[in-house]
């Protein structure tokens, strides 16, 4: 039972952060939400007996890609007053 709850929690968290990642107006928050979602996904991979996948997920998605996003966002975002979304 506890096991199930753990699974559900992880899934729910992942989906919630995924939703935040696409719905949040601020791109920075979006990127960070994506990273968090990736972390949860990595945990799920661990649970599902896929440790190497989890490691890669965490390294590339939660790490490298997020950094890329943040860098890109910082390059494309204008100062105040520009249109969003």
């Amino acid at each position: 039972m506890i096991d199930f709850i753990f699974h559900f929690t992880m899934i729910a968290a992942m989906i919630i952060f995924g939703l935040i990642a696409i719905e949040h107006k601020n791109l920075i928050y979006s990127a960070i939400s994506l990273a968090v979602m990736s972390v949860f996904l990595g945990i799920i991979y661990f649970i599902l007996n896929a440790p190497y996948v989890a490691v890669f997920q965490l390294v590339i998605y939660a790490g490298a890609v997020t950094v890329l996003f943040l860098a890109a966002i910082s390059l494309v975002t204008k100062a105040k007053g520009e249109e969003e979304d």
């Binding site: 990642a21 696409i22 979602m37 799920i44 979304d85």
Partner: peptide
């Protein structure tokens, strides 16, 4: 940028399916 994020989430869904 959001499009790219969406693509990443899409890909994650597919990965999860596999695993």
């Amino acid at each position: 940028i959001k499009t790219v994020i969406a693509i990443e989430i899409l890909i994650d869904g597919a990965h999860l399916n596999f695993i």
